[in-house]
């Protein structure tokens, strides 16, 4: 649908990948080959490094190369092409060459029974690579606008699609051509007690937690980051300056996940404003497990617990504990808290 909208207008767009000619394993490219011809929409050999290398060449010649990697779990053979080639194409040539027309689409994330190799969320690896953008939509409508922007963006983009939503998400998608800005986060639910930041499929889990928290009188602000690199730090910062608390959630393992980057940056910018440590509710530091998937995932209740403990951080502080007394004295934490509280009242 999205690709149809794009293909209709541009004759230099090419869509290819494993089984893409038949419509792709998730049916994303169904009918495209009949509509735009086999020269524009085609199957590739099972060779991810080849797919991305080919796409870079095509893009470097001024085309829009839309390459599909069948599962994000299988993007790693293409890592060299993405990291050492696509990401540095412009920089290494002093902008004589670029492969900005490149968009790599790949389904990511849990699906209920995917085990190690059909469930991973590898976005953090790509966020560590200057020169590419990383975009993750949360819904079909978002997917269309963000994908069109990614395709037209003059930089290579890695576009991860939440495969959980391929079958579940139903949403009215406008027929017309529209673009949603990259690097612009969106507040999808306003609130005053805590800011929640996420992307992709995780947002619907976070939203459920926000609804539950509201029943307990906690007002949550939920933000869809949409573009992970370069990300909209300002929007998160201003939200945290309002709420004084931050929670980040993603399916990828917590250690070295993109939540760590957000946490560090916001701590730098809002240190005096924060009323509790930044909370991260993420996947665990194990390979994505099959039987244990329900245990591994950052579920609604894990998020809800973290919302509550973050909001109640000071009231749950056990002042009689010698360790905590020590901490309070050492860091003068109480004073900071007092100032923050005062600050909020004044504001």
């Amino acid at each position: 649908m999205i690709l149809v909208a794009y293909g209709r207008q541009v004759d230099c767009a090419y869509v290819f990948g494993e089984d893409v000619g038949f419509g792709g394993v998730f049916r994303c490219t169904t009918g495209l080959s009949d509509r735009f011809g086999k020269q524009r929409v085609f199957n590739t050999p099972l060779c991810e490094q080849g797919i991305v290398g080919f796409a870079i060449g095509l893009a470097a010649m001024g085309n829009r190369a839309i390459a599909e990697i069948q599962f994000a779990d299988y993007i790693f053979p293409a890592f060299d092409q993405i990291v050492n080639e696509a990401a540095k194409f412009r920089y290494r040539s002093g902008n004589q060459f670029n492969c900005g027309g490149l968009t790599i689409r790949a389904p990511y994330g849990a699906v209920g029974h995917g085990g190690h190799y059909h469930s991973q969320s590898p976005e953090a690896f790509f966020c560590h690579v200057p020169g590419i953008k990383v975009v993750i939509p949360r819904s079909p409508q978002q997917a269309k606008g963000l994908l069109l922007s990614s395709i037209r963006d003059p930089n290579p983009v890695v576009f991860f699609e939440p495969k959980w939503l391929y079958r579940l998400a139903v949403e009215e998608v406008p027929e017309n051509d529209y673009m949603l800005p990259l690097s612009e986060a969106e507040v999808i639910r306003e609130g005053s007690d805590i800011t929640l930041v996420g992307w992709g499929a995780q947002l619907s889990v976070m939203e459920q937690a926000c609804v539950e928290a509201e029943k307990d009188g906690i007002s949550c602000e939920l933000i869809d980051l949409k573009t992970l690199i370069p990300w909209d730090k300002e929007k998160i910062e201003s939200s945290v300056n309002k709420t004084g608390r931050l929670l980040v959630s993603h399916e990828a393992p917590i250690t070295g996940g993109f939540g760590a980057e957000i946490s560090a940056s916001i701590t730098e910018r809002c240190f005096l404003r924060l009323e509790a440590p930044v909370a991260r509710v993420c996947g665990l530091d194990t390979p994505f497990p099959l039987v244990f998937e329900p245990f591994y995932l950052p579920t609604k209740n894990k998020i809800l617990d973290a919302i509550k403990s973050t909001v109640n951080y000071y009231s749950s502080y056990d002042k009689s504990s010698p360790v905590h007394q020590h901490t309070l004295l050492e860091k003068n934490h109480l004073w900071i808290y007092a100032f923050n509280a005062l600050d909020r009242r004044v504001a």
């Binding site: 190690h116 190799y117 059909h118 390979p287 497990p289 099959l290 244990f292």
Partner: peptide, 13 residues
């Protein structure tokens, strides 16, 4: 079935 007698301990498909 990924049960506890599975040598892979239910970790893989």
């Amino acid at each position: 079935f990924g049960n506890n007698a599975d040598y892979g301990k239910g970790k893989q498909m």
